[in-house]
Write a protein that binds this DNA or RNA. Structure first.
Lengths: 236, 236
DNA sequence: TAGATTCTTATTGTATACAAAATGCATTTT
DNA sequence: AAAATGCATTTTGTATACAATAAGAATCTA
């Protein structure tokens, strides 16, 4: 029934997507056509088509005659992120509050339940994917083809940033995560009551929480340094 | 020197892009793999990769087992457009005013000169492409990976809307176009003086001009009707 | 031994052949 | 005559073979 299980091609597509989102593949990491095609019992032709599609969506970067690599993350992208995210997500949530359909709200509540479950007993990857799903649904609710491309691009790095910086080893982290969860609940409420203003405000709050979290780790001094090495360190 | 002349593949890529932007290929129109591969002396394998990439960028839509078609335009997309455009372009111009580098400003002035030339003696397609180039440069100036995907998606339909509705057959049209040109000049000035506020305001003004133009043609009564037929009519 | 150069190997890009799916047409059936 | 079924044709999807390019290793030169 799921799109992912329909063909080997979409299986590969979904696999690469979540591998990028969960940092199973690190930013900047090279992708090998041959080994991947063997792993998925798929020839290089359709595999390369998947690469192109993923490149168009911002998951990977293609270099002529030099293969595909996972989209890089630098501290510049981090700065760009927190500049664009509040605006885009503010608009998305505002539109979501206006346009959301009943079954979409149901999906959103379900996604939030899953997210809460991962807070209790899930891996960091599970949590990142559940959180990602939640926000993807708000994007669908907003239902604006021009907003979605940027929003989806933001969600990619939102997940990766989350994987890097949200690791609930201490109590402070756990508190932040449960605050994020509360904000999700508030977002659902705002959407359900069609409260645009509240939704827009919650978008800002949600990103401010993230930014505060990250600013504990990132000093503004270091700019333009690849983040791949750091991600590798934290996951090793 | 230009990217387009490097390989047959990028030639095809650029050709399809401008064909979509200028409505040489109408929204919703089917693309035939075989005839295109013959026309460009290219096998279907790289051609299909180009399709995937264009799909990722919003120029075409891919349907499983049913080929590629030019991205559709409906009156819904028109409404979405004027909702998202002022916000995205406002942010883009604001950032452009902050970040623009001297050589980019030079490019922008050059693009504006070209645009003015097309107003005097260019086809509608030439004008749409020149106008598109102008806005693309402002996007580069803004230099934010998260904003650009949506902005580029907007530019696709901005060009197509322009091709449909801006046809300077009468004096009123010519006036609107020269007003657009004046706004371009003002945008350049705002960017050059790093005047963020003015830039943001000009973004709004620029879209309002477009919207006013289009509202002469589109009545809010008819919604969700494919625009392909209309585009076909005006170009026939 | 450091550097440059050629040769080898590995990887990426393209063409073609074949398989699978969808479309259209003709025939059959009611 | 309308609907449905099966067949032929066209179109799309995948595998494989080959060509072109880049990366790496070994050799040669100073």
């Amino acid at each position: 029934m799921k799109d992912a299980s329909r063909s080997k091609k979409s299986e590969l597509y979904e696999h690469l997507k979540s591998a990028v989102l969960t940092l199973a593949l690190n930013p900047g990491e090279d992708l090998d056509e041959v080994s991947l095609s063997e792993e998925f019992n798929l020839s290089r032709t359709p595999l390369r088509e998947v690469f192109r599609q993923l490149a168009g969506e911002g998951f990977v970067e293609l270099r002529e005659n030099r293969g595909a690599r996972v989209s890089a993350m630098t501290y510049t992208t981090l700065r760009d992120f927190f500049l664009a995210a509040p605006m885009i997500y503010g608009a998305v949530l505002q539109l979501a509050a206006t346009n959301a359909k009943p079954d979409q709200i149901k999906s959103l509540k379900l996604a939030q339940d899953t997210f809460k479950a991962t807070l209790r007993s899930g891996s960091a990857a599970d949590r990142a994917m559940a959180n990602n799903k939640f926000h993807e649904i708000t994007g669908e609710m907003a239902d604006n083809v021009y907003l979605l491309p940027s929003f989806k691009r933001l969600l990619i790095d939102h997940a990766r940033i989350g994987m890097t910086f949200y690791r609930p080893q201490d109590q402070l982290m756990a508190d932040k995560l449960s605050e994020a969860s509360s904000q999700h609940d508030a977002i659902i409420a705002a959407i359900e009551t069609c409260d645009e203003a509240a939704a827009a405000q919650l978008a800002t709050d949600h990103w401010n929480l993230s930014r505060g979290q990250i600013e504990q780790y990132v000093t503004p001094a270091a700019l333009d340094v690849p983040m791949g090495s750091m991600a590798r360190k934290t996951s090793a």
